[in-house]
Amino acid sequence: MNVYGVTGWKNAGKTGLMERLVTEITGRGLTVSTIKHAHHSFDVDHPGKDSYRHRQAGASEVILASRKRVAQMTELRGDEEPALADLLARLSPVDLVLVEGYKRDRHPKVEAFRQETGNPLIAQDDETIRAVAADVALEIEDGRPVFDLNDTKAIADFILAELGL
């Protein structure tokens, strides 16, 4: 399975870029799945709902299914967070998996960068970042490409060319 990441600091535009890339790439007839890393506690379930009550009662995993979608929730209950490779293994085959976050993992990535955040460019010290998508003109010392953060087509072209898709 082809894996490509979008990484960057908080408020750098990662989620917007991911959303636009999914739309652009699926619009070209390719299948795409996504994985997003969250640094905080999150819940896709709501108190009082049946599946929430199952988890609260102690279920390790809960699958919620309907005609339109299936969601599987796993409670770690103190166990370690699964590695990206383990999460990728859970996915059905697709043409491309776009991964948001996972800065430290070794898959190829595009860095989303917004100058206003005041954060340093991650690409300077990370060779897994193959290109930068920025809201300002930048130049990277080793010549890696820099795209306009909103030029989704060019970023998608770059990713797909890198993967031979």
Rank of each mutant, 00 (worst) to 15 (best):
R55G: 07
F147P: 13
L17V: 09
L84K: 02
D79Y: 10
L121K: 09
R114G: 03
I129S: 01
R55N: 03
V97I: 13
E81W: 10
N119K: 10
V136R: 13
Q115Y: 09
T34N: 06
V110F: 06
K49A: 12
P93R: 14
G78K: 00
Y4I: 06
M73K: 11
G16P: 10
L121R: 04
G78M: 07
T128Q: 05
M18L: 14
G58I: 05
F147Q: 06
L149C: 12
K109P: 00
N150K: 14
L17N: 04
K68I: 12
E127N: 13
A38H: 15
D151S: 14
D79P: 03
A65S: 14
L21Y: 04
F147H: 12
D43P: 00
V32F: 08
A154E: 11
H40V: 10
A83P: 13
H107G: 06
H46A: 15
A133D: 00
G27E: 09
K68A: 15
E81A: 12
V97L: 00
F147A: 11
L76V: 10
L98T: 02
A38Y: 14
I140P: 04
W9N: 03
D135W: 04
R144T: 10
L121G: 06
D126S: 09
L76Q: 09
P120V: 08
A38I: 09
A71I: 14
L91I: 06
H54D: 04
G78R: 00
F113S: 02
D43I: 01
N2D: 06
T74M: 09
R130M: 06
N2R: 15
V110G: 01
V44E: 08
V132T: 08
T23L: 10
A38E: 14
T74R: 15
G8H: 07
A85F: 03
R144V: 12
E116N: 03
A57T: 03
L87I: 12
A131T: 07
M1P: 11
N11L: 10
V97Y: 04
E61M: 07
S66P: 10
L30H: 08
G58L: 07
V22L: 00
L64S: 05
D95S: 14
K49V: 10
R69I: 13
P47K: 15
I25S: 01
A133H: 10
S92W: 03
N119P: 01
Y102D: 03
R69H: 14
S92T: 11
G78C: 08
V110H: 02
Y102Q: 01
E61R: 11
V97Q: 02
H40Q: 11
E80T: 14
R114V: 02
V94M: 07
A123E: 03
L96I: 09
L121V: 13
K14Q: 10
L76I: 12
P47T: 11
Y102K: 02
S60P: 02
A65F: 08
P93D: 15
L165N: 04
L165W: 07
K14T: 05
V6Y: 02
